[in-house]
Structures are given as structure tokens and as C-alpha cells.
Amino acid sequence: MIVNTDANDIMDDLLVKCMLGEATEAERRQVDIWVKDKKENARYYEHFRLIWTQSRELAAHSKVNEEDAWVRFKARTSRETPVIELKTNTWNAWIRIAASVLVLAGVAWLVYFSTLKNSSTELVVLKSGMVALIDTLPDGSVVTLNRRSSISYPEGFGHEDTRKITLTGEAFFDVQPDKSKPFVISVNDVTVTVVGTSFNVKSNTKQTEVIVETGLVQVAKNDQKIKVSPKERVTVQEGDKALVKEKSTDEFYKYYRTKTFVCDDMPLSELVEKLNEIYGARIVIGNKKLEKLRINTTFEQKSLSTDLHVIGQTFDIEVTYPGDSIVLK
């Protein structure tokens, strides 16, 4: 169910006026009362303000055609979240600029009021776009979503016996401790249960991976359960009942939070695999003798070409670009 009422439209108008500094004293009081009235109103306001701030920063450097981008923005968001249509031309022009920059720059659209009905329970859905997104959940836990990932949770999250979340993609969770309300993540056919800890969960169509940084995590599939401690990793293959636990020997999984790739005696073959995943590239090692070469360095997350230049200089190897592939030889 998509929430899109006239009342919300009116409040969006008032929020825009406040952001522009054009609201009257009475209008500012009305917004203050609305924000303090409900927790979801306060969260909506913070998400609105974050989008506004990011779009202003990006708009200063953008030369895009905002009218064309606005059309694309409406087409894209009409399937996911209500589009803010403002009646006043001045405000509407600014929102169009902001939205156009958000779309082209790949900043996440925070889908707070895109709610879904599931057995009469409303779900809050939070999605990231082409950049990672950090958000604070109602219980105070902090989640960092990697690109093209999403979570959903009941609107009353934190008020029931368990704190249930469904994840698609990859996210890092820093969970607020609460022994009376376990934090439970459903991802693929795997369940991750914690009380208060920090850990990374990554899923795709082939497998689910859990890496623990602090505390203790329980990973379960069907009737199997396993405890995971700091610096340990559990991998669950799709269609396989086995829960495979091993030491987590690298910190590469942190790249979308730290913006760095830490290579600690990492084989070149593994580094190439990671870069292909991160950048969506097709890097191939043309000489198998190079696969076992090991690298110790930290890459700043700038660009793939910069990383390839460092690899070429480090190992004195050639980087070529035949077709849509990249070959190291």
C-alpha cells in the first residue's frame, strides 16, 4: 500500500518552505508540533531533510537538464514511492532540480513512507541506490546499506517481543543491546539472531555470508544453528543445508563503509574477484602464473582505473582493454 494523502502533500509543502527559510512563525510551529506528535513523523522529517541537504550539495555541481531528469525521476519512483508534487512554482522548481541531481548522481531515495500491507502489518522499506546509505532504526541500531540493497521492518519495530528485519543485498548492522528483544534478520532462507553486536550480512542468489565484528551471532537454516564469534565467517550456499564456519582473514568486506580496500597478503586472483564484484567489471588474469602473486596495500576507493594502475605498477604487469574486458598479463 502506498501512502499518498492530501495531508502528506500539505505537510511536504510546509517542510519545503521551512528548508527554504520562507515559512511563517505559525507554519514553523505547525511543523514542530507535527514532528513531535509521532516517531514516524520525526523519522520522515529527518529523511526529508537528508534528501534536501544532499541534493543541494549535488545541485551546485550539476549541469543536468532538470526537466528531463524530473520526468525520469517520476517514472522511476512511481513504482516504489509517492512523488512529492508541490503546487507552488518556486518550490516545485527547486524540488525538480534536487530530484534530477539525486537520480543522476545515484543518491539513495529514502523510501520511508513506501509501506506495504502484509497480513494487516505495515512495513517500512528503506532502499539504497548507487551509493551506500546509513540510517538509524527506531530502536537506536544503526544500519549501513551497501549499494542496491534494502531492508524492511514492521512499522512498530522495537515495540514487540522481537526486532524483525528482512534484508536484500548487503548491510552492516550495529545493533543496540536489548536482551528482552532479540534482533532477527531474515535473508534468503537464513535467519540471523543477535541481542547486541555488530556484523556484516551479504546475500545474493548463490549464497549468504555473515561476518562478525563484535559480540556473538547465531546463524540458522532449517533445523541447523551455529554460533559465530568475532573475526569468524559463516557461508551458506543456496540449496545446501550446511553452515560452513571459518576464520575471517581479511577486512575487504568493509569497503563500502570505510571507502578503502585493505589487502593483507591477498592473492591477485582474489583481489580481481573482489574488484569485479565491486565495480561490475570483467577483469581477467591472462597469465595463470600471476594468480598467486600476493599484494599488501590499501586502495583508496577512487576509481577502477586508479586501482588497476597500482596493480600494474606493483607487479610490473601490463593492463590491456580488449573489447569490454580488462586483461592483466
Rank of each mutant, 00 (worst) to 15 (best):
E85T: 10
S303V: 09
L116K: 15
I84M: 10
P182K: 11
N92M: 06
G169N: 08
A171E: 06
L104N: 14
K288V: 04
I226M: 11
E122D: 08
S78W: 08
G196L: 06
Y44S: 01
L275T: 04
V310N: 02
V16K: 00
F315C: 05
K227Y: 02
D189Q: 13
N287E: 12
L167I: 07
E22F: 02
T88Q: 14
L243G: 05
K227A: 12
H47W: 11
H309L: 12
A105W: 10
E270A: 08
K127A: 01
T214F: 05
S203Y: 01
D189I: 05
R147V: 12
T191P: 00
L308I: 11
K225I: 07
L216I: 11
K202Y: 09
F113M: 04
D6R: 07
K164Q: 11
T168V: 11
I10N: 09
L14F: 04
D9I: 04
K181Q: 14
T193V: 02
Q207G: 00
I10D: 09
R72W: 06
A108G: 10
G286M: 07
G323C: 09
D178N: 15
Y45M: 03
V319H: 02
E22R: 15
R282K: 14
A132M: 01
L243H: 04
R43M: 12
S152T: 09
S62F: 06
E40S: 08
M266I: 13
F252P: 00
S55N: 09
R257K: 13
L50A: 10
A75F: 05
E85Y: 09
G129I: 09
A281F: 07
Y153G: 04
G215P: 03
V212A: 03
